[in-house]
Write a protein that binds this DNA or RNA. Structure first.
Length: 287
DNA sequence: TCTATTTGACCCAC
DNA sequence: GTGGGTCAAATAGA
């Protein structure tokens, strides 16, 4: 039966959260979820008018990553389109809990190049309101090379992107995404940067290299805050500190055992992933 | 059988 | 009018 389309059920009336698009840059900073979730924006409330928010006005955030599907949320793909002037199709995802919990979070993934691994531009729209148990998962965010860096260098920032999604089926998703992430192979001259603190700090750093003092003593002693892929390949993973500590910003550091994923470069993985739970830095690093 | 993905069409913003 | 975002039937896979 050709059911007439139940049209555009949501009426969005967000406060202007002017798209914090990181123009020409990598990940954008989001407000801490403690203050309102992934985007730091209130979820859509009933709109005074029966209309949709203009697309341009929708709160959205853009980040670049090599692992667009690996962000700690459970997404369902609902569309794909070839975009004009783009060699790659755009993939549309929305939160799997959209119906169950009226979670309006959605994202679109646009491959930007054909490198190995390919770089994706991910645009998140609306925050998760599904209120599922956040299960932080590592995420690799491609940072634009700092001025003066080698031409092909990217900064990979490993951060938590769980902002409230996840939940029961999360494991399945995680497994799938983990496989996808396995495809993210080394990139020549790639630099790995462990984001030990908040994204704010990272973005404020001209070279995305946090000063030593920003690492907790244990972490700093055990591992450099950043090192090159070559170093990562040449040296075994640093011994993890076994304590939970705080950085100078008061952010909680979980144990490395909890943070590490132990991915193996020899198998095309990306080495140790370090992520911080949401409550670690008061926000999702990647948003 | 159920759930997720694919895909063409529809609708709307620009 | 065009391009992009979303819907929903069809299809595939578990």
């Amino acid at each position: 039966m050709a059911s007439p389309r139940l049209k555009r059920e949501q009426s969005f009336d967000f406060e202007e959260a002017s798209a914090q698009e990181a123009v020409g840059s990598a990940s954008a900073s989001y407000s801490p979820p403690g203050g309102g979730g992934v985007f730091g924006i209130s979820p859509p409330e009933s709109s005074p008018r029966d209309g949709r928010k203009r697309r341009k006005d929708r709160p959205s955030l853009v980040k670049h990553t090599f692992t667009p599907h690996f962000d700690g949320h459970l997404w369902r793909k609902y569309g794909q389109k070839n975009i004009k002037d783009s060699a790659f199709p755009r993939l549309y995802y929305r939160c799997s809990y959209r119906e169950d919990r009226q979670c309006l979070a959605s994202k679109l993934v646009q491959q930007e190049n054909d490198d190995d691994p390919p770089l994706y531009r991910v645009t998140y729209t609306y925050e998760h309101t599904c209120n599922t148990t956040p299960v932080p998962t590592p995420d690799v965010v491609a940072e634009q090379p700092p001025p003066g860096a080698a031409g092909d260098a990217y900064l990979l920032r490993f951060g938590s992107s769980a902002g409230g999604g996840g939940g029961g089926a999360h494991q399945q998703q995680t497994e799938r995404e983990r496989q996808q992430q396995n495809t993210a192979r080394r990139r020549p001259f790639m630099m790995l940067s462990f984001d030990s603190s908040s994204s704010h700090q990272l973005h404020e750093q001209p070279h995305a290299f946090p000063p030593d003092g920003q690492l907790p003593a244990t972490a700093a002693a055990a591992s450099p805050s950043s090192f090159t892929a070559a170093e990562a390949l040449a040296a075994p993973p640093p011994a993890p500190p076994l304590t939970t500590t705080m950085n100078d910003g008061g952010d909680l550091f979980s144990t490395w055992d909890a943070l590490r994923y132990g991915l193996d470069y020899d198998h095309g993985h990306l080495g140790n992933h370090v992520y911080l739970p949401d409550d670690c830095n008061g926000g999702d690093d990647n948003y």
